[in-house]
């Protein structure tokens, strides 16, 4: 059991408090491939942010690989993110002034890995994703599919336990979407990574053996 959520509640404060997650219970096994679907506003992104320790929750318990993720300091949160979680975003979120290989090696930079070792690993992963020739290119010189593959390489390079993908195919055409999803699926098996994907796309959702449906802050599997 890599991820275990027990009765997670999340409310966004403000003039009109918004109760987004209303008691989520969820267990995900190691190496599982899960998609999360739901209408916009259903709380998909909030759930993903909580899973990625980018956001906190108000009530309940979140266990990540046996560690209770609650009341962490920024330092500890950064440590977990860096070591255990890889992110893939809809808008790729590559750093525009860094080349593909520099983007991929950035997580290792924050782990304090030496420059040479970083470069080696990054090239290895770019090669796995078929982007070896594009290592020296900047994001704006690449297609959407290529950018997303760079982002996937960046997510994988730290050997994370889970990869969280927020609409990874949202900005891609259907053919590329299929390719990217197949790739992610293959890699998650190869690298023994738990893959959690948020998506609208039914085709994408169909790729996954397990599909979780969110509605109004609750799971309706």
């Amino acid at each position: 059991m890599i991820i275990e959520l027990k009765n997670i509640h999340k409310t966004y404060g403000g003039a009109q408090p918004l109760h987004v997650l209303k008691g989520i219970d969820l267990s995900i096994d190691e190496g599982e491939f899960v998609t999360i679907r739901g209408a916009s506003g259903a709380g998909k992104s909030t759930l993903l942010n909580i899973l990625g320790i980018l956001d906190t929750y108000d009530e309940g318990e979140y266990w990540l690989a046996g560690n209770l993720i609650k009341g962490l300091s920024e330092r500890e949160a950064a440590h977990y993110r860096n070591r255990m979680i890889g992110f893939v975003f809809q808008s790729f979120n590559l750093i525009s002034f860094k080349t593909a290989v520099e983007n991929v090696e950035l997580p290792l930079y924050y782990q304090g890995v030496s420059h040479r070792r970083r470069r080696e690993l990054a090239m290895e992963y770019l090669d796995k994703l078929g982007l070896k020739e594009w290592a020296g290119h900047y994001p704006n010189e690449m297609s959407g599919g290529q950018k997303q593959r760079v982002a996937i390489a960046r997510a994988l390079i730290t050997h994370p336990n889970i990869i969280l993908a927020d609409e990874p195919t949202g900005a891609l055409d259907s053919v590329t979407s299929q390719e990217v999803m197949k790739l992610m699926k293959r890699l998650s098996v190869e690298e023994k990574v738990t893959l959690i994907v948020i998506t609208h796309d039914l085709h994408v959702a169909a790729e996954a053996p397990r599909c979780i449906h969110l509605r109004d802050g609750l799971i309706v599997e």
Binding site: G52, L54, E74, R75, A78, H79, R81, N82, R83, F87, N93, L94, I95, S96, L106, P107, Y110, Q111, R154, T158
Partner: peptide, 16 residues
């Protein structure tokens, strides 16, 4: 902001 956010998401500490 975005760049810094990305750095933080992939493991940069606030101090860094």
């Amino acid at each position: 902001t975005t760049e810094i956010g990305i750095r933080r998401a992939i493991g940069a500490l606030p101090g860094e």
